[in-house]
Design a protein around this nucleic acid. Structure first.
Length: 621
DNA sequence: GAGTTTGAAACT
DNA sequence: CAGTTTCAAACTC
């Protein structure tokens, strides 16, 4: 098997087309490739060239011929996608893959545009800083070695081990370049002679390569094994000295390490994990984003690998409680039902839930920063307010139109007739407002706040009684299909509209009213969302500052169900209170709602009372 | 930035 | 295969 994988045939033989030589562990998680360069995967020979090509990133700035084969195949080192760095390393970085390039029966190493000029002695640049490390999430250049005595022709040299020429490295007496290709080739052969697997990936044991072997569990955990295993003695396998740790994998039975702490459940490992994340704002932001977008799981947010090795220590599930993130996830599980009723605004949907319910105790998921901030009743009230706004807008427009119409025609009509019409109109207005409030109250009474239910409600209501365009607009996402199916003719549309709209004499007026209603509703809704964003940012900052406090015990009250700091609690309450008349300065959440409510006709806003979470009845709208 | 520590690679 | 040395990255100060 290995003979055919290319590792033994470095240069490989029988390469016929451009294929990816290494897929390594490019899982997308953020950690520097570093020594993982030696995880070059020769096991994927035979993969489709298309897949191979797509696997190569544009960062293949260092595409260089590496080894000439006797069978017309050339291994070309290429930079590849970032490899996952242990949870401690936030940013991704390019990794190197090797691509077999078809040769043209020439023993001369083909030149490549990206081949840099020979560099006998590289000037110092950033010593000991991987060029491929990234800062601020921006991928940087490939790692640069600092070899001094190996001429970059031994596996000590990461460039050499990666199968790439040194490029911009800080090495001395470098022979890992095109000008020293003969010596380089000789070194490769010698290396392969010593160890036929020298250029094979270190991480992964599957014949399909590292990628296949590094299973991701959905939350960033990587299941993989170091082929040879580490032999750490003093680092506890919790430093980058350890290749397993560096590869973001747990030590396995292949390892011969001493005092290993790189296993799932290791308190030290988790403590390290926590501490690093606590100081890493990027992770917080990433988690927040993941929660919001639902892009949770495989690579968005580093997490400890699953247990692969339990030497002398048992799993400490309880220890994960120390982990704010873990606890977060656990609480998320417990809180899922509650949060799931707000799929669009609250926690992230599927992935989060799936992970939380299917993975082991050390897995964690992410919650929206707004999860505990927005309650179902909040949404209900928001919808109610918007519906009221819609009705008010329609009413005002109708009044204006009516007034202008009367001004135009009133000159010639009897004052009695005019006043009669006005009375009728007012009655209609009242009726429309009443209808709209009925719509709202119907929603309230139903207590069906979940999106799916509200959608059904909307469909039912639309059959029973007219709905304002504002209401329909609020339901557009959920009931588009039903709404479209229900409206089979313009008459239906008119029927669906609230009476306020139907009272308008002309379709044109109705359209304008609808437009105005929609504009108002959407504007207010946008304002609410903007404020939610602000609140989320506030919460994030708060979370971050507390996480930085190192004292994770205190974070219990911050993350998860207990995330109700005074500020956020107030915000939440104010959210519920809406346009409460509290003399105290209103938190931002209050402003979010009050801005909606106060800009409307205050006299038209109904007073709705409902018990809050604590059973207290408070005025809301 | 210099010095130390560490563990893989190389060597015996 | 085991022990030692070399080496360069990781780490510390």
């Amino acid at each position: 098997m290995e003979k055919s994988e290319g590792g033994d045939s470095f240069p490989p033989n029988k390469g016929q087309s451009e294929v990816v030589v290494s897929s390594t562990v490019g899982t997308g998680v953020d950690f520097p490739a570093k020594k993982l360069a030696r995880q070059l995967d020769f096991t994927v020979f035979g993969q489709s060239p298309a897949a191979a090509v797509t696997a190569v990133t544009e960062q293949s700035q260092k595409i260089q011929p590496l080894v000439m084969t006797t069978s017309g195949t050339q291994i070309v080192p290429v930079k590849l996608t970032p490899v996952q760095r242990p949870q401690l390393q936030p940013p991704p970085q390019p990794q190197q893959h090797m691509v077999l390039m078809p040769m043209k029966q020439t023993a001369v190493p083909p030149t490549h545009p990206s081949i840099r000029p020979p560099k006998p002695e590289s000037p110092r640049a950033r010593p000991r800083q991987s060029a491929s490390e990234v800062k601020d999430g921006t991928p940087k250049k490939q790692k640069q070695c600092n070899c001094k005595h190996s001429r970059c022709l031994k596996l000590y040299c990461e460039c050499f081990a990666s199968g790439v020429y040194c490029d911009g490295c800080n090495c001395n007496n470098c022979h890992n370049n095109v000008e020293n290709e003969p010596a380089r080739r000789e070194a490769v052969e010698a290396t392969l002679e010593r160890n036929p697997h020298a250029f094979r990936p270190k991480i992964a044991s599957s014949p399909h390569g590292a990628r296949d072997n590094k299973e991701e569990t959905g939350d960033g955990l990587v299941l993989a094994k170091h082929n040879k295993g580490c032999h750490c003695k003093k680092s506890g396998c919790l430093k980058k000295y350890c290749e397993c740790f560096q590869a973001n994998i747990l030590c396995s039975e292949n390892c011969k390490c001493m005092d290993c702490k790189n296993f799932e459940g290791s308190e030290e490992r988790q403590a390290l994990f926590h501490g690093d994340h606590a100081n890493n704002m990027a992770y917080l932001q990433q988690a927040a984003n993941a929660a919001i977008t639902g892009a949770i799981g495989s690579s968005g947010y580093g997490s400890p690998p699953v247990n692969r090795k339990r030497k002398s220590q048992e799993l400490f599930f309880a220890s994960t409680i120390k982990d704010p993130v873990h606890r977060h996830g656990q609480l998320q599980q417990g809180n899922h039902i509650k949060s799931s009723v707000l799929p669009s605004l609250s926690s992230s949907p599927g992935p989060c839930v799936g992970n939380a319910t299917t993975v082991g105790p050390s897995k964690f998921t992410y919650r929206s920063l707004l999860e505990d901030l927005i309650q179902p009743q909040d949404l209900k009230e928001l919808c109610s307010v918007l519906v009221v706004y819609s009705g008010e807008a329609a009413k005002m427009l109708a009044d204006e139109k009516d007034a202008s119409k009367k001004q135009a025609e009133g000159q010639t009509e009897a004052s009695l007739a005019s006043s009669t019409q006005e009375r009728v109109q007012n009655q209609k207005d009242s009726g429309s407002e009443k209808d709209m409030l009925d719509c709202c109250s119907s929603g309230d009474q139903g207590e069906k706040i979940s999106m799916e239910e509200s959608s059904l409600d909307g469909a039912d209501v639309s059959k029973r009684r007219p709905m304002s365009p504002g209401t329909l607009a609020l339901m557009c996402d959920e009931s588009d299909t039903m709404f479209a199916a229900a409206i089979t003719s313009p008459n239906d549309l008119a029927t669906l509209g609230c009476n306020t709209s139907s009272q308008l004499p002309h379709g044109q007026g109705m359209t304008e009213t609808y437009a105005e209603q929609e504009r108002i509703v959407l504007t207010k809704f946008r304002d609410c969302l903007n404020r939610l964003v602000t609140l989320g940012e506030i919460k994030e900052k708060k979370c971050s500052s507390m996480v930085r406090g190192i004292d994770f015990v205190d974070q219990k009250d911050m993350i998860g169900n207990g995330f109700t700091t005074t500020e956020m609690r107030n915000q939440h309450d104010s959210f519920n209170n809406g346009v409460s008349n509290s003399p105290l300065p209103q938190p931002r959440t209050t402003q979010m709602f009050s801005s909606v409510a106060t800009t409307a006709n205050n006299n038209a806003l109904p007073k709705v009372h409902r018990p809050d979470e604590n059973g207290d009845v408070k005025p809301t709208i």
